[in-house]
Nucleic acid binder design. Sequence first.
DNA 1: CTGTTAGCGCCTTCAC
DNA 2: GTGAAGGCGCTAACAG
Lengths: 345, 345
Amino acid sequence: MSEPKIQDVARLAGVSTTSISNFLNNRMEQMRPDTQRKIQQAIEQLGYRPNNAARQLKTGVASMVGLLVPSLANQFFGSLACAVETAAARHHCHVMTFSTFRDPERERAVMADLLAYGAQGIITGSALNDTDHLVAMTARCPVVAFDIKRSDDSHERITTISVDNVAATTKAVEHLVALGHRSIALVTPPPYTLNRQDRVKGFQQATAAAGVSGELVIADATDAPTDLHGDTQLFELGRSAAARLLSAASKPTAAIAINDMMAIGIGIGLKQLGKRLPQDFSLIGIDDIFFSAANDPPLTTLRQPIQAMADAAVQRILAPNTATAGGELFAPELIVRASTAAPPK
Amino acid sequence: MSEPKIQDVARLAGVSTTSISNFLNNRMEQMRPDTQRKIQQAIEQLGYRPNNAARQLKTGVASMVGLLVPSLANQFFGSLACAVETAAARHHCHVMTFSTFRDPERERAVMADLLAYGAQGIITGSALNDTDHLVAMTARCPVVAFDIKRSDDSHERITTISVDNVAATTKAVEHLVALGHRSIALVTPPPYTLNRQDRVKGFQQATAAAGVSGELVIADATDAPTDLHGDTQLFELGRSAAARLLSAASKPTAAIAINDMMAIGIGIGLKQLGKRLPQDFSLIGIDDIFFSAANDPPLTTLRQPIQAMADAAVQRILAPNTATAGGELFAPELIVRASTAAPPK
DNA sequence: CTGTTAGCGCCTTCAC
DNA sequence: GTGAAGGCGCTAACAG
């Protein structure tokens, strides 16, 4: 049951431990081809695996980055985790993902764990509640955020990677206006985070620029049940916001949801109220989560280039010098599907 | 930037490193309250965090289990990862999750990484392609699988935790029969894995027992595009199987899908063919993934008790003596929603 | 109850 | 190219 160690390999191969170490760290110049062969053979025969803990203890670095998400059960963050893992793998680095369940205490504990593991850096997928500890982390290792609270005043120390949220809602409005809509609503929970705030800004600017009505419908979290695991909340919030949407003062014929999860909820709510999509009402989301395409009707949305964003985040941590300075903004891509059409006559 | 170490704490607190170690490992009996207080204070003042690598090197154990899933972008496995993380946290243990993308080479590499990290055990969420290495792992650490290939002949060495698949399809058939259906189909990709095979068995037994027609519709993977990240495959497979379902020899009025992802695809396909659910056709899935409730119509399904299963899996690894011997089967729960109804007259 | 000490497995000089 | 040796931070004897 006990693992073979580097000396065992050295003995079997009939070489020194130094050579094994060199071999393991790809310093091939320093040995003859047949030495390499012998080592390779000995390693395979023994099923040898260098012990990560020992290596880390000696070198002081772990090839690991930490990822914090509200919950992996939330489809968007599952995809994000997957993208981050892929990005890290390109740097031969591993990812340790933690679900925080939006619990400040857990966020804190988890950051401490990451530090104890010697994580090279930490990436947070959504705005954390425990801002203090996040900021404190910046003193220890690079911190990259996909979203942060708008009240967070330590932006400079946290690298922010995100989609261009202003552009997202702008494009959404333009798409809807091109279709002929003259009154559009944006449905969102209270915009506490930078991402949401920017989406609101883009919405307001774009509707004003196009000279169409742009009403904000705030879906308040108080009346929806909290579900920490699945983040069902936004879905339920969307469903319950459907009625408010239809009775809004500006009589909107189309709505932009703050994200796809909410859009899907709105869609269900609208259908329950007898509206057909897109004939009676147009709906557009943001994110392009997997189920947007499987929705009925398939949801028009603005896709976040998650993989590119994950690559950038990982690069910030593992190769900070090759990365662009400051935050980075990625262009959203309009994916036209079947939930948007011309307004009813 | 360099982290404080145990000696620094000892010096500041004016005690020995042993006491610090005892303190860190909750051996409080061995010291006076004021010593504890001093230590606590010193730790906080220094922001001390014990180095995990050193601890692991010394004790030989990492408090970590590995989880292998096809992809975290797949909603079911995201939920599973979340459940496993929660279960492990109860044992103060961390989880390192890897997406294998069903690539045998990656499965192998990832298992090796897990070994190098000193994982206490490994859990695999779905049948792996690289069976040899999985079996080899059993010699090093406990291996728990939620599903394995039916050709895998090393079942004894791998603990299998799963829902009672025979019961799942049996309950599905019973529900449908109670509703009045006399001809039911089971839609599945080729049943290469134990889970699927059992589902087929339950279906055949139950339809036979009820004296109703039970046709198997095999959706072949060849005509659907492969999407490794999102496992869209099953969704697309379901969609394309809808036509075959309607033209099946036994004229089924209801279908059981091998899982919810496929059921959602079948539902879309059916609607595209002009069928209304559940008036014209009843549909039932297995899993109860998040989007089943958000589907239109909300999907009747058999829920897997994922959290309980994850708890059992983790317990197998971290407390094998307290765990039940052999594999464990969990009862699925019928969740009746709106995709099933009496057959059309 | 507290201090001292010897490694855990690996990496890296350094002399050979 | 090789072999020896020191030490990364922590734990667990063992003495006191």
